[in-house]
């Protein structure tokens, strides 16, 4: 079969085109313009519904709490439309709020560190397995990730309660029971348990990309296993470490379920305070709660920017 060039196929048309070159160009422009217009219409039809939904029910609400954070809360929890930065100065000067920030940041960092120390060896172990075992092991990490967080935290109550699994075992063995539930240790266990999958998945992705021959090269050059790990493997898997850390840090900073169910709501974390200011306290104080949420968002943005900087450095 022969392929015809347009010039062979429609020589009459092309000659006429030569005659009225300008006309042809105009016709072509028109076709091109209608194509672009049709494309734009298609794009708008595809993009607009979702985009409007996100703008209306996600972006706008965030702007509203930004606005609320700069107004005054009335004595009955009503909003008084009067500009102030008092909510923010309250957050950074009054001990109850300042302590909640420091406590939340501290326990989030601790959780992140423990998840990293537990997650890295696990991710390494999974990467070393043959492909089908690897898929299964990853899937087993993924399942808790998708199952109800609340229920999984509740399960720890059964284990840690005063008449729970551990303490009744201790009693059966003749030991004195210990207070496990409603302690900060229990909160920490719950947080690590809940967030570990967030750490393992990005770590796995990073270690999977790591070229293990580099470890041999380091060993050949006289590095000990420890040195090779710290100076070759850790820097090269840094994007995974940072991604996992951000993914663990963010939900931990805002949590209130774990500290309430396992920590017995004995001390206030950010999430507990925000929840109380919006839902439970009498009177509620939405402007102050909004300011807390906004500061939390800013902390989070700082972390995400840090992540992007690190991963961009790695790309270079």
């Amino acid at each position: 079969m022969r392929l015809y060039w347009p010039s062979e196929q429609g020589s009459a048309a092309s000659s006429s085109c030569k005659r009225t070159k300008e006309e042809c160009r105009l016709a072509f422009d028109l076709i091109e313009r209608t194509r672009v217009q049709r494309d734009r219409r298609n794009l708008m039809a595809l993009l607009l519904p979702g985009l409007l939904w996100l703008l209306l029910f996600f972006a706008l609400p965030l702007l509203i709490i930004l606005l609320y954070s700069f107004i005054v809360s009335g004595p009955r929890g009503n909003l008084i439309w009067q500009a102030t930065v008092g909510n923010y100065t309250d957050l950074f000067t009054r001990a109850i709020y300042l302590n909640a920030y420091l406590r939340s940041i501290w326990i989030s960092l601790l959780t992140t560190l423990i998840c990293l120390l537990l997650g890295y060896p696990l991710a390494l172990f999974i990467v070393r397995q043959p492909p089908h075992v690897r898929t299964l092991l990853l899937f087993l990490v993924l399942i808790p990730f998708w199952t109800n967080f609340l229920v999984r935290i509740y399960a720890w109550q059964i284990i840690l309660a005063n008449n729970g699994l551990i303490n009744s075992s201790l009693r059966a063995l003749g030991f004195a029971p210990i207070q496990l539930l409603n302690t900060e240790g229990a909160t920490l266990i719950g947080l690590v348990y809940g967030d570990l999958p967030f750490m393992v998945l990005p770590l796995y992705a990073a270690i999977d990309r790591f070229d293990f021959t580099l470890m041999e090269a380091a060993a050949d050059l006289g590095a000990s296993r420890r040195q090779a790990f710290l100076r070759v493997m850790v820097p090269l898997t840094m994007p995974g470490i940072v991604a996992g850390s951000v993914l663990v840090f963010i939900p931990t900073l805002g949590q209130f379920v774990v500290s309430e169910l396992l920590g017995g709501a004995k001390v206030d974390y950010l999430g507990n305070l925000i929840q109380r200011l919006f839902l439970r306290s009498n009177p509620p104080n939405w402007p102050l709660g909004s300011a807390m949420a906004i500061v939390m968002m800013l902390l989070l943005l700082a972390f995400i920017l840090w992540y992007f900087r690190i991963s961009r450095e790695e790309d270079r």
Binding site: L47, L51, L54, L55, F57, F58, A59, L60, P61, L62, I64, I65, Y68, V246, I250, P251, L253, G254, Q255, F256, G271, I274, Q275, F278, W286, G289, S290, A293, M296, M297, L300, I304
Partner: peptide, 24 residues
């Protein structure tokens, strides 16, 4: 910008999204 708007709900802490929607 649209890209950022799509990914933001994935990373914003749930409680922030919750109070924002409550206020809204």
């Amino acid at each position: 910008g649209v890209e950022a708007l799509i990914y933001l709900p994935v990373v914003v802490p749930e409680i922030v999204m919750a109070v924002a929607l409550l206020a809204f």
